[in-house]
Design a protein around this nucleic acid. Structure first.
Length: 440
RNA sequence: CGGGGCAUAGCGCAGUCUGGUAGCGCAUCUGGUUUGGGACCAGAGGGUCGCAAGUUCGAAUCUUGCUGCCCCGACCA
């Protein structure tokens, strides 16, 4: 992509209303624009990152055997009356009537709908276990949306639903999701912390929230630093390994503000291992048994030929929130550096040319073609802006690697820079090799 | 929902108290000089001052109503 062709409306100044670092960066870098309170349009750069995060989430869901589907944003009120949540959900649910005066709603979550689909189509224990998920826009009419896409009304969420015959099996499904979640966040280069949580309005009796650590997060968390050293990649997807992982994450002390006990913290964790920091909730998993299957009659026949309610769980990840969360975690001193897997581009080519000397740009175009032929997605700054202006824009865009074509680059070696690191002189072949390796 | 604030050019703001027909910075366009961390000079375009009614010779400015947005509190991916 050429920067002169990219719809990349940079803002130098943003309203004092944008308090959060991620909110400011997303506005400045032309990733999003607000269209109403808590409702945003995603511009090309923002959408590219959003889609890439979505893809990582998808791959990790598929990896544990969850199957993707897509349920609508608009749902009938009927099934919500069946589950009893039509009244419980209150003002947060956006209610709509169609021309026939039928009651509809913009889905804040999908337990009812997926349960309906399940009960109409699955009748035997032989079809279990089953995990279905979709990645869809949700709407929750928050009383006070704020902080950009961090807490908005319309948001993109990955939600999975598990169906099992027994509680024991349901916990296995729950554990698979636990594993998939930690892998997902690790691939996004985030330190995620699973915390035992109260399950709130979705209801049930086992639940964890996943908090990613960022200085500017909203929730206060207390933890044993040893949790940060656990290598997620040292576990595989086998039942045994997953159980080990869960116990590795469950044993050391960790708690959010509400559940924190200073006394217990001091007893269990030595002073040098104690860490009090901030976090952002990006995922939440629940096991809730037959909370929905019972009122909605989602039954299967078991081996004995008896009709039994299925055991269910639901598992959410705030995909659009993750975009902001990654920025909160990865943006340092106004310089954003995306993890390569979700960066809008793999590498930026920055020629420092001017009107009277376009040789750097000519050279950059050749490099751009070479990278393109090697399946590396580069962004080339083909404008005549001053160098400082170019660098500032790229600090916002956050592409992690740069090739700078200026006085330092020669015919052979190119000035290669990883953001927030020292530059090094590499040949184009070395750069291609390096990026390919990093991309995996 | 309770309490408070704001709405003026694409963006950020001043002007409102004390009424006289709108201004600054950035961005945009033209020309020229610049070019390793948000350059400079000269010129140009761009605004029904959120909407509606009222007061007045005259309203961005005063009054009333409405709408939108934001901030502080309880909820949430």
């Amino acid at each position: 992509m050429l920067i002169s062709k990219l719809f990349f409306p940079v803002l130098r100044e943003v309203s004092a209303d944008a308090k959060l670092k991620s909110h400011q960066i997303m506005l400045k870098a032309g990733m999003i624009r607000q269209s109403a309170a808590g409702i945003y349009s995603w511009l090309p750069l923002g959408l590219k990152v959003l889609k890439k995060i979505e893809q990582v989430v998808r791959e990790e869901q598929n990896n544990v055997g969850a199957q993707e589907m897509l349920m609508p944003t608009i749902q009938s009120a009927d099934i919500w009356k069946e589950s009893g949540r039509y009244n419980d959900y209150g003002q947060e649910m956006l209610r709509i009537k169609d021309r026939g005066d039928r009651e509809l709603l913009y889905g804040p979550t999908n337990e009812e709908l997926v349960t309906e689909i399940f009960r109409d189509n699955v009748k035997s224990y032989k079809s279990l276990p089953l995990i279905l998920y979709h990645i869809q826009w949700k709407f929750r009419d928050e009383i006070r949306p704020r902080f950009g896409v961090m807490r908005c009304r319309e948001f993109l969420m990955k939600d999975s639903y598990s169906f099992d015959l027994t509680k024991e099996d349901a916990i296995k499904s729950y554990n698979k999701m636990f594993y998939a979640y930690l892998r997902t966040f690790t691939r996004l280069e985030l330190k995620a912390l699973p915390l035992r949580a109260s399950s709130g309005p979705i209801g049930g009796d086992a639940s964890h929230e996943f908090i990613i650590l960022a200085d500017t997060g909203e929730s206060q968390v207390y933890l044993d630093k040893s949790l940060l050293d656990i290598d997620v990649n040292s576990f595989d997807g086998s039942e045994d390994s997953i159980n080990k992982m869960i116990s590795a994450f469950s044993t050391p002390y960790s708690a959010t503000d509400e559940k924190h006990s200073e006394k217990e913290f001091n007893e269990k964790v030595s002073i040098d291992k104690q860490l009090a920091t901030k976090g952002i909730e990006v995922g939440h998993i629940f096991y809730f048994g037959n909370k929905y299957s019972q009122p909605m009659k989602a039954n299967v026949l078991n081996k004995e030929g008896k009709n039994v309610n299925v055991e269910m769980g639901s598992y959410g990840i705030g995909v659009s929130r993750l975009v902001a969360a990654v920025i909160e975690a990865k943006c340092i001193d106004g310089v954003m550096k995306w993890p390569l897997v979700i960066s809008p581009f793999d590498i930026a080519i920055i020629p420092l040319n001017n009107k009277s000397d376009t040789t750097p740009l000519d050279k950059a175009r050749k490099i751009y073609e070479t990278l393109k032929n090697n399946s590396i997605d580069a962004i080339l700054d083909d404008t005549l802006e001053s160098p400082s202006s170019k660098f500032k824009n790229f600090d916002l865009m956050g592409v992690p690697y740069q090739i700078i074509i200026g006085s330092k680059s020669n015919d052979d070696k190119l000035e290669f820079k990883e953001l927030n690191e020292k530059t090094e002189m590499l040949t184009i072949e070395e750069i291609i090799k390096k990026i390919k390796k990093l991309k995996g």
